[in-house]
Amino acid sequence: MPTTRADQHRFRLPTLTGALRLLPWLVVGLLIFAAIAAPLIAPYDPIKNVGSPMLAPFSPGHPFGTDGFGRDQFSRILHGLGPMMFVSVGAVALAVAVGGAVGLISGVMGGWLDWMIMRAVDILMSFPLILAAILVLVALGASTFNLMLAVAISQIPIFARLTRALAAGEVVRDYVMAARASGFGMLHVMVSEVAPNILRPLLVQATSVVAVAALTAAALSYLGMGARPPEPDLGYMVKEGQELIFIAPEQTILPGLVIAIFVLAISFCGDQLNEREGG
C-alpha cells in the first residue's frame, strides 16, 4: 500500500539528496575559507613576478601555471575570491538596506508617497542597469569599493519594489492594525512591527541576488571598470586572458570557472532557503 512506499521514500531520500543538498553550503564555506585564508595558503604573492617564466604551464609549483607577467595564477585566483565576495555580498547588503528602507516607507505609508516612490522605481527600472553601473564607475573611478557601490545602486530598485510588496502585504494584517489602533507612530509600525516580519523573506531573496550581483560585478570588471590592476580580480583576469586563447586558454577559462562555481553554489543555497520559506 502507499504507506510503505512513502516510508521507503522517507528512508532513502534524506541520505542521498541530503548529502547533495549539503554540497553547495560546503562549497560556499570552502570558498569563504579560501578567501579569508588566502594570504596564508597562497604559495606566492599575487602581485609580484615570482621569477618564473611567463605563461608557464601547470606544475606542482604552480598548480594553475603563471600568467602573462610570470605571476602565480593559483595565488591570484585565491586572492581574487575575497574581492568577489566583498563586492557581491556588500552590494546586496547595501541594496537591501537602502532599497529595503525605501520600500518599507512606501509600503507602510501608502497613498501618494507610495505612488511617487513606485513610479520613481519604475523609471529607474527602465534605465538600462549596466549603463547605470557604468556611469557610476566612470564618475567615481575604478576600484573594488566603487564596483561594489555601482552594483548596489543597480540593485536598489529591485529591493525597493520587493520590500514594498512584502510590507504592503503586512500592513493590512491584524497585528499592524492593532498597533496602529493603539496609537503607535508610523516609525514604530515600520521598524518594530513590519520590518521584523518581512526580514526573513527579504534575506532569502537577497541570497539569490548575491549570485546576480557577482555576475554583474564580473561583467563590469570584464569591461575594465572594476578593480585596478595588478590587484587580482577574477572578471578582469578573464579579460586579460582572452587574447591568449590560442596560446594559453586556461588563462581565461580558470578564473571564469571559479566565478561560475561561486555563483552556482550561492544559487543552490538561495534555492534551498527559498524552498523552505515557500514550503
Partner: peptide, 15 residues
C-alpha cells in the same frame, strides 16, 4: 587608459 596594452604597461612602469 584602461584598455589595450595600457594596463600591462602601467603595471610594469609602476613596478
Amino acid at each position: 587608459e584602461n584598455q589595450g596594452f595600457w594596463p600591462r604597461l602601467g603595471q610594469v612602469v609602476e613596478r
